[in-house]
Amino acid sequence: MEKVFSKPHVLTDTPTHYCPGCTHGVIHRIVAKVIDDLGIEGDTIGISPVGCAVFMYNYFHCDFQQAAHGRAPAVATGVKRVHPDKIVFTYQGDGDLAAIGTAETVHAATRGENITIVYINNSIYGMTGGQMAPTTLMGQVTQTTPYGREASTQGFPIGIAEMLSTLEGPSYIKRCAVDSIKHIKDTEESLRVAFQRQIDKKGFSLVEILSTCPTNWGMPPLEAMEWERENVFKVFPLGLYKDKEINFYHKDVANADEKAIKASENSGTDCDSIKEED
């Protein structure tokens, strides 16, 4: 009999700790399949976030580092700079990436850091029990917006894909979803492009994946998917936000011109009165 479906090799046998109906399991599997398909398991180093996916290192065979809340892009930067030929990805939720870690996210993106970010946007803080996230929709009820999110006190949701696509540094930014087979296939294809971009050393790639949180949204999983399609998709439209090859000009510093060196020597308290002779 022909085998038509199997568990990706990079996934371990450990049962996940995610709630029933949570989309993290689906997304883990997609990430794992892409790693398998690209044959990069032995080269991949993952960075897990703070949030529901904090323990994701239990579900993958590849090397992992577990980062402080929001700092995964900075940790990934450190790893990637040491191992530029390895594949480094972070997996972060919306609280981690779009609130406490906004600076790290924006600056890894604008540096064109050659890493891949898998960004899970489910409009809520899941692990701490359902508080407002930067991506919570207007009017959405959470533990910390009991009367619904309201602009005068809580402002408006952040569109990370939109925001980062205004930067020069990123190479590939896409927003996907996992609410249907079609969207799941699209997510897989997008992640494949994102990782390939990194393999080709073409720079920063981020795939935002809209997700549900049935537990904290207080809905059965299918109803949550329906709510997502009717509400979340309108605020966070799916699609390709940036796709551009970035040309990283590399200066040959071994033959750096004297002027550049001089400019830096003349700054600060460096003692160079000779310059005054010019």
Partner: peptide, 16 residues
């Protein structure tokens, strides 16, 4: 981008 980011880059590089 900040001292916070710098020390976390050190975390990543040291862990690597």
């Amino acid at each position: 981008e900040s001292e916070v980011a710098a020390i976390n880059m050190v975390f990543g590089a040291a862990g690597a």
